[in-house]
Every structure is written in C-alpha cells, then in structure tokens.
Simulated scan of single mutants.
Amino acid sequence: MKKSKWILTGLLMAAPLLAQASCESVKDEINQKIIKNGVPENGFTLEVVPNDQADQAGGQVVGHCENDTQKIVYKRNGSESDTGVPANAGTSQDSPAQ
C-alpha cells in the first residue's frame, strides 16, 4: 500500500513536466505550418528566446514553450518589406482572442 502511494505521488509530481511541450517540438510544428503556407524553407528563421528577450529579438512572436518561459520568434529572411507571418503559423494558444 505504501509503495503504491509513492508511485502515485511521483506520477502526480511528474505530470506537469510531461504535459509541457518541448521548445524543439513546438518550433518544428510552427516551422511546418509556415512552409505549408507557401513560405520557402530558407525564407525565414525561428528562434527560441527567453520571455524577457522576445522584444529585442527583432521578429514576431509566433509561439511559446517550456511553461511559457520561452518564446518562439519568427524572422523573415530577404526582403524587409515583406515581414508578415501567415495567419495560422502560430499555435492555437497564440491566436488573438475573438
């Protein structure tokens, strides 16, 4: 009985860590969405930065990860005049409230 309590306690403590998406998996998901929207693979970069550095990163925040402690920033390569991000490039959590 005591052993099962320890196992249950361990699982409950680990659950939030397992539920958090890794930055690389979120970044890869966003990367694929942008490519599917017609942006060439070499036409943009995605960078993972700490929350407090997102404004200085020089791009648009399109996602977040690690329990919202990191932001994923989109930067368009090439033409400075075309800096728009496809509307459905980010995660559902990053969509504006309607």
Rank of each mutant, 00 (worst) to 15 (best):
G63W: 08
N37A: 14
T83Y: 09
C65L: 12
V48G: 05
V39Q: 01
N67W: 09
A89K: 11
N88C: 06
E47Q: 10
V48S: 14
M13S: 11
E41D: 03
L46N: 13
A14R: 07
K36E: 15
L17Y: 10
E80P: 02
H64E: 15
T45I: 09
P40I: 05
F44L: 07
E24Y: 05
G84E: 14
Q60G: 01
G43F: 01
S79G: 06
Q32I: 07
N37T: 01
G84L: 11
Q20M: 13
L18V: 04
A15N: 03
G63V: 12
K36C: 00
Q56H: 05
R76E: 00
E80G: 04
I72E: 13
C23G: 13
A87K: 13
D52E: 15
I35P: 07
A89Y: 08
P40M: 00
S81I: 14
T83P: 03
M13K: 05
K27C: 07
V62G: 01
L46C: 06
G38F: 05
V62N: 00
D52R: 15
D55T: 04
N37I: 03
G58V: 04
Q60S: 11
V61P: 02
L18A: 10
P86I: 10
L18M: 08
Q56F: 11
E41K: 13
D68N: 15
A89S: 15
V73F: 01
V85R: 03
G38R: 08
I72K: 12
S25T: 14
K71D: 11
G63H: 07
N67T: 10
N42L: 09
I30E: 02
H64K: 12
A21F: 12
I30F: 09
Y74L: 07
A87D: 06
F44I: 10
S79P: 08
I30R: 11
K75N: 06
G84H: 10
D52K: 15
A15V: 15
V26P: 03
Q60I: 15
T83C: 10
C23M: 09
L46M: 06
G63F: 09
N77S: 14
K36F: 12
V26A: 09
I35F: 07
Q60L: 11
A14N: 01
A89W: 09
R76A: 08
K71G: 04
A87E: 12
Q56G: 02
T69S: 06
Y74R: 05
A19N: 00
P40F: 01
L46Q: 12
A57I: 12
D55K: 15
A21N: 15
F44G: 13
V73C: 04
G63L: 15
S25F: 01
E66P: 03
D28M: 06
C23I: 02
P40N: 09
T83S: 14
G43I: 02
C65Y: 12
G78C: 06
A89I: 07
T69Q: 10
E80H: 01
P40L: 01
M13I: 12
Q53P: 03
H64G: 15
T69P: 05
N67E: 13
Q56W: 07
F44S: 02
